[in-house]
């Protein structure tokens, strides 16, 4: 893949020099960031619609917190502290599966259970990170929570591409079954859908997506990009098709806007924060449209 990335970067740099594309694309880190944005935008947008349907809004936050522990374990067992993917993936998948296992064995609602796991994972992660930070002298907590899309390297992009491919290959064919299982498990079961199994598949998909995005945009931002575009798109959508596509478009535009606007206009805002702010702007605008244009009004109660 590195050959491809190099070719792509050289091509875009040449185009930037010749003035075909904006000058800002002269920089390698900008091209890398936009490459990630073009994958992360649609990916998180599409998965976000399912997250909303399943009422698992804070699950990815919990996984993001668990990633902290993953990083700490990685440092302890000697993985590179800048990319401890093995520990992060392993620990977070175990964490996700454990959460789902517990969910099917308690009568608690999903959001409450996720809240419990979220707190536990943050506590363990923060404790372990403090313990290991003496060894590596780095701001692990900050980098996991907020990431840095402007410092991604080829390995990060490879991991992201692989996760996106898995999601496409596994998630798309199962999309309808996942959605029906969350709408009504009983109806889904009668139709031969293995509701429990499909829940685990979804949990693992969201987990690996979150982990792949943590280094790039950070746990907090993954959460934001899973929810805000879907919320914004919901305001304007009158069917599933427009909802999913609007979400993907808003999510991708937010990523692009968040990366390019601060650079273009020399605004001293980090890209992560800017991405969320652009998404939030979409949400505010669509909420206003929904309340002003009569065609979008629905019952309030």
């Amino acid at each position: 893949m590195s050959v491809f990335y190099t070719w792509l970067r050289e091509l875009i740099t040449q185009l930037a020099i010749s003035g075909t594309v904006p000058r800002i694309l002269f920089y390698e880190f900008v091209i890398n960031a936009l490459f990630c944005a073009i994958i992360i935008g649609p990916l998180l947008g599409c998965v976000g619609t399912m997250i909303v349907a399943k009422r698992m809004a804070f699950f990815s936050q919990a996984v993001g917190n668990a990633a902290l522990t993953g990083v700490a374990i990685g440092v302890l067992i000697g993985e590179s502290y800048t990319a401890p993917y093995l520990s992060m993936f392993t620990f977070c998948i175990v964490f996700g599966i454990l959460l789902n296992y517990t969910k099917s064995r308690t009568r608690m609602s999903t959001d409450a259970l996720i809240g419990v796991f979220l707190s536990i994972s943050l506590a363990i992660g923060a404790s372990l990170v403090l313990f290991v930070s003496a060894r590596v002298n780095t701001h692990i907590l900050e980098s996991v929570m907020f990431g840095s899309i402007l410092t991604v390297n080829d390995l990060d992009m490879n991991v992201l591409l692989a996760v996106a491919a898995i999601t496409l290959l596994v998630g798309l064919p199962l999309y309808n079954r996942m959605l029906l299982a969350s709408l009504n498990a009983s109806l889904a079961q009668v139709r031969g859908i293995q509701v429990q199994l499909i829940e685990y598949v979804f949990i693992v998909l969201v987990t690996i997506i979150t982990v792949a995005c943590v280094k790039i945009i950070g746990a907090v931002l993954v959460e934001a990009l899973l929810l805000i575009p879907a919320a914004a798109a919901r305001n304007l959508s009158r069917g599933l098709g427009s909802f999913v596509y609007n979400t993907m478009i808003i999510s991708t535009l937010s990523c692009f806007g968040g990366i390019l606007i601060p650079m273009q206009y020399d605004i001293p805002v980090p890209s992560g924060g800017a991405i969320v702010l652009v998404a939030a702007a979409f949400f505010i605008i669509t909420t206003i449209i929904r309340n002003v244009i009569p065609g979008f009004k629905e019952a309030k109660m």
């Binding site: 349907a53 959605l179 709408l183 069917g239 599933l240």
Partner: peptide, 14 residues
Amino acid sequence: RTLPLTIDNFLTLI
């Protein structure tokens, strides 16, 4: 009630 799911969408789903 959360999702903008029409009757058509629901039946397509199954």
